[in-house]
Amino acid sequence: MSLESEAVAGTTLELLEARLRRLSYLLTGGTDWTGAPSTPEKPASLDETVSRRLARLEREMEKLSRAVPAVRDVIQLHDRFPDLFHPPTPHDIPEGLTPRTLASIVLSYATAFPETASRLTSLNDLPVPDATSSASLIALQPQLDRLAQTQAEQAAAVSELRVRTARVLQRWYEVGLVGSGECWAEWEGRLEGVEREVRRREVIRERMENEI
């Protein structure tokens, strides 16, 4: 291994150790007298591990989202607009600003007021969608749900076919390639043994003929 590869490997190990220490501190929250993070305690059972607890929480959240539409809507809203769930930090008005300075700040946004008012007024002019169209769209929802279910089943079937294909390829590689190679190696070894035996007997026969 070159010096550069050894340096890269050493740096990678140091980074992994630093991340492991950081994770240990996040899990335990304590350190020993040297400042090193405390080692997390071993869970009492397999169900108490972090991965199992996270998986259990995800299953419960998924079950709750299926049972309560409001929860599903909130999760979808969080996925699309995560900033809505993190309100901005309130900013206090700086002290010491003169009324003239405050007026200039307000007047700098004066052009936005008519535009906002115009947009709000235009909402009243928008036509309300026809109830028949909305009803027809709602009536299509069961069909869309069935199509989504069919698509999910097809995706599962394709995934299963991929797994089976991978297993067949693995079996063909183990039996067709590796097995054939081992068989040819065995035959070659046996042929070499037969050739040695034939040469040995020819040498013995030549010696016997020379003696006669």
Rank of each mutant, 00 (worst) to 15 (best):
Q149L: 04
L126H: 00
D92T: 08
L123A: 11
D145S: 14
P99S: 15
P99M: 13
R146C: 02
P87F: 03
D79K: 07
F85C: 02
D83A: 09
F113S: 05
P87Y: 02
D79L: 06
V128D: 03
I138W: 06
L77K: 03
A135C: 07
A117G: 01
Q149D: 14
P88T: 05
I93R: 04
A139I: 00
L84V: 09
V106Q: 09
P127N: 06
H91W: 00
Q141F: 10
D92C: 02
P82Q: 05
A139H: 09
Q149W: 01
I105W: 15
Q143P: 00
T89Y: 00
D130L: 08
T132M: 14
L147P: 00
L126K: 12
S122L: 12
D130G: 09
I105C: 13
S122C: 05
A148H: 07
E95Q: 10
F113W: 02
H91E: 09
R80K: 10
A112D: 14
T89N: 04
T132V: 13
V128I: 08
D83N: 03
P82M: 04
T101S: 11
S104R: 13
T150I: 03
Q143E: 12
L102K: 13
T111W: 03
P87R: 03
Q149M: 01
A148Y: 00
A103W: 04
P114K: 04
H78P: 00
S104E: 14
D83E: 14
L137V: 08
T116V: 10
L107Q: 09
S122W: 07
Q141Y: 11
F85A: 04
P90M: 05
L147G: 02
N124G: 11
I138C: 12
S133N: 12
A135Q: 15
D79A: 13
A117T: 00
L77G: 08
L120W: 02
G96I: 14
T116Q: 05
T150Q: 05
G96K: 10
Q141L: 14
T116R: 05
P127Y: 03
Q149Y: 01
P114H: 07
I105H: 10
S104H: 11
E115N: 11
S136E: 15
A131M: 13
F81V: 08
R100C: 05
L107P: 01
A112H: 11
D130V: 01
L140E: 13
H86E: 06
S134Q: 15
V128R: 10
E95P: 02
L123I: 06
H86S: 10
T111D: 15
A131W: 02
D83S: 12
F81Y: 13
F113E: 11
A139E: 12
Q143R: 12
L77S: 12
R119H: 08
T121K: 06
D92G: 01
L147H: 05
Q149C: 01
A110S: 14
L147R: 07
S108G: 05
T150L: 09
P94T: 04
T98W: 03
T121C: 07
D79R: 08
T101A: 14
E95S: 13
S118H: 05
L97W: 09
F113C: 02
D83R: 06
L84Y: 13
I93S: 01
N124M: 05
N124H: 06
P87M: 07
D125S: 14
P88S: 13
Y109V: 11
V128A: 08
P99C: 13
E95D: 10
Q141E: 14
T121A: 15
S133I: 14
L126N: 02
Y109M: 11
R80D: 08
D92Y: 04
R119P: 01
A103V: 03
T121E: 09
S134A: 15
